[in-house]
């Protein structure tokens, strides 16, 4: 009994009427309280149920609805889609599945080309992110601890500031009378401003810039855990630093590379804000197509079909990411 419990006056019986009961129960406790309580505690299902119900209702059910609506037909009504269920003569329940939306996706070149373009943009940006992020994560992991904390804070800081405003900052740098062109012209390196806005280049920059912390942090947490003696052993055995890096550090950091790349690639495929602000107007990305279908054409079934098509592409990367994430959280 702690001093605090010892001080408890009879008055506390009023506020804690269950206390004597509890103390009696406590005397009859099983030998290993903790294991018993953990296994039999009635609060456990309750605590589990709260986040579970929330996520099932607001995360899982919505996807089922999207899947359902992707098979329905667009009509002029509120909401603008036909119900999948119907009653024939008020007796027989029928299910009408309409495959036209998917057929439309495959036959209209707009969808196919923006789908492929999105994958290309996401892949190239992920590669650039890795090429810049890996040496940075490596440098941070190898720097002395005091510097390391400052570096890490500098990596995380932009992540806390508005994503939208950070993308906006690049408009000021990239546009034809923007900072980069002004400096280059002032230096006399160019006579005419270079067109950088509304190009693939601008989208790559925007994605790399916005997602760089997501690449660096998993890489860093992986590289930081490496056993340095392995490299020393390799050096003792005569391996050049480059070879030691290729044979030891790089293979060991594979989980970090996979996690970082997926954290960039998956959201980048569906990116909407960056291509809208910096990207081409003649070639849309799939996220923009989805939102245009929804807001401009008010064709909810086709928008749902686009979402499902995107999910089909992303389901494998998402599952790989989940496996990594769960392993990472279990093995600390």
């Amino acid at each position: 009994m702690s001093a605090r419990n010892g001080k408890r006056t009879p008055g506390s019986l009023l506020t804690r009427p269950w206390e004597p009961l509890w103390q009696l129960f406590h005397r009859l406790r099983p030998a290993r309280w903790s294991a018993y309580v953990r296994d039999h505690w009635i609060g456990k299902p309750l605590v589990t149920a709260v986040p579970m119900i929330w996520l099932v209702l607001f995360f899982m059910v919505p996807f089922i609805i999207v899947f359902g609506i992707s098979f329905s037909q667009s009509i002029l009504a509120i909401p603008p889609y036909e119900s999948l269920w119907g009653w024939v003569d008020d007796k027989v329940l029928t299910l009408r599945l309409h495959l036209g939306n998917y057929n439309y996706l495959f036959t209209d070149t707009l969808y196919v080309s923006s789908y492929l373009y999105s994958v290309k943009v996401a892949a190239v940006s992920t590669l650039f992110c890795l090429l810049l992020g890996y040496p940075m994560a490596y440098g941070i992991a190898r720097s002395p601890p005091t510097q390391r904390n400052i570096f890490l804070m500098l990596i995380i800081l932009p992540f806390w500031t508005s994503f939208l405003l950070r993308v906006y900052a690049w408009i000021g740098l990239l546009k034809s009378n923007g900072v980069i062109n002004n400096i280059l012209m002032w230096l006399g390196l160019i006579d005419q401003p270079i067109t950088m806005m509304q190009t693939d280049f601008a989208v790559y920059i925007g994605i790399v810039y916005s997602y760089l912390p997501f690449m660096i942090l998993p890489l860093y947490s992986n590289l930081e855990k490496h056993d340095r003696t392995l490299l020393e052993a390799a050096a003792d055995l005569g391996a050049r630093p480059w070879k030691a890096f290729m044979r030891i550090t790089l293979p060991l950091s594979m989980p970090g590379i996979v996690a970082g790349s997926l954290l960039v690639f998956i959201p980048a495929v569906g990116e909407y804000v960056i291509p809208s602000l910096l990207g081409r107007t003649d070639q849309l990305m799939i996220g923009r197509v989805l939102s245009d279908e929804f807001f401009e054409n008010r064709d909810w079934p086709v928008a749902s079909a686009v979402a499902i098509a995107m999910l089909v592409l992303l389901v494998v990367p998402i599952m790989v990411f989940q496996r990594y994430q769960n392993r990472e959280l279990a093995h600390k």
């Binding site: 607001f58 919505p62 999207v66 959201p267 909407y272 989805l290 999910l311 992303l314």
Partner: peptide
């Protein structure tokens, strides 16, 4: 990692 357009659409529906 879910692209925001998908989450947004799903929530609205």
């Amino acid at each position: 990692v879910m692209p925001e357009v998908i989450t947004g659409l799903a929530m609205l529906l």
